[in-house]
Design a protein around this nucleic acid. Structure first.
Length: 301
DNA sequence: AAGACGAAAGTGGTTGA
DNA sequence: TCAACAACTTTCGTCTT
């Protein structure tokens, strides 16, 4: 920590602001780390005797306990996320899990939960290259989830991922479920579930994802030209007029438009490549592609 | 050998009785 | 609460280049 230098002005004068949990450059004021935790002792010692006396064995964070001692709780209701009863076999399983979980945990606290969640949130946001404004509002939403008790019994990671997904859509910079699943290590299905749950419970008014938002990112991800992008937008516009979009997954639409555009512009990518970039399967692209071809009378074969 | 295509079966969510 | 249903995925076989 002491060896760190400010990436902006190379100064070594870094100050820790414990109240805000930040590491701040003393020269140019750049905030280097946010959400930092003070890992030092909470007491002060004025001489060697006191230091020896006050030091304790238990560390605030230890690798000896599950989750480094930072744990969640399993609720007691034997219901799945939608409120349906679990089969009895599952109930027994959860009973055992709860028992061991309690034994292995020190008392769970909201603050610890938040500490884990916020650092995970930051990690994911960094991978996805999301601006601070989204991180901020995602963190706020996560806090609301905690207050409403939506977290208990669920993986912190899945809620974090869902909050990020929701915020991205809200801001019109959608990331696909697949992308978030990749960097968060939570299954797409799980994120979707958690997302539906929190958007229902918190009454989030998230607009339907507009497929054209995805187009530029797929184009960029495949290294295609601006011409292809224009073409893809054009196709999407026509498709919208033909009522081809209702009920369809927006990513599938966008991917098919990009694929079709790449063919029309002689910059063809394989269906597989596009499917990977968009996080869907070839089959879906094929289906959308076929629809586009017939409905728009495209000059293809 | 790789890509495109399509059929069939499976998954999880929504909807409407 | 449950069955029908739509969208999407997975898997696999066939055809084309």
């Amino acid at each position: 920590m002491a060896e760190e230098r400010c990436p902006e002005c190379k100064s070594k004068k870094l100050t820790q602001d414990y109240e805000k949990g930040e590491l701040v450059c003393g020269v140019c004021g750049l905030v280097i780390t946010e959400g930092m935790m003070d890992e030092g002792p909470e007491w002060r010692a004025f001489n060697a005797d006191q230091r020896r006396e006050r030091a304790r064995g238990g560390a605030p964070i230890t690798y000896m306990r599950p989750n480094k001692g930072l744990v969640t709780e399993i609720d007691q209701y034997n219901r799945d996320i939608r409120g349906a009863r679990l089969p009895s076999k599952r109930q027994a399983q959860f009973y055992r899990m709860r028992r061991w979980h309690k034994r292995a945990s020190i008392t769970g606290s909201t603050e610890r939960n938040l500490a884990v969640a916020l650092s995970e949130l930051n990690r994911i946001a960094s991978y996805l290259g999301l601006p601070d404004s989204i991180r901020e509002s995602a963190a706020l939403t996560y806090r609301k989830c905690v207050e409403k008790g939506l977290i208990k019994g669920r993986l912190i990671e899945s809620i974090v991922a869902a909050v990020i997904y929701a915020k991205c859509r809200e801001r019109g910079v959608p990331r696909t479920l697949a992308e978030i699943a990749n960097v968060s290590g939570v299954k797409k299905k799980e994120i979707g579930r958690a997302y539906r749950n929190i958007s229902r419970e918190l009454d989030l008014k998230i607009p339907l994802a507009d497929p054209s938002y995805y187009v530029p990112r797929f184009v960029a991800g495949l290294g295609l030209s601006g011409k292809v992008q224009e073409k893809a937008f054009e196709l999407m516009k026509k498709a919208t007029k033909k009522r081809l979009i209702s009920g369809r997954g927006p990513t599938g639409l966008a991917a098919a438009a990009v694929y079709t555009a790449s063919v029309l512009c002689n910059e063809q990518r394989t269906q597989k490549e596009v499917a990977d970039a968009a996080g869907i399967t070839e089959v879906t692209i094929r289906n959308r592609y076929k629809e586009l071809k017939t409905e728009l009378d495209l000059p293809l074969e």
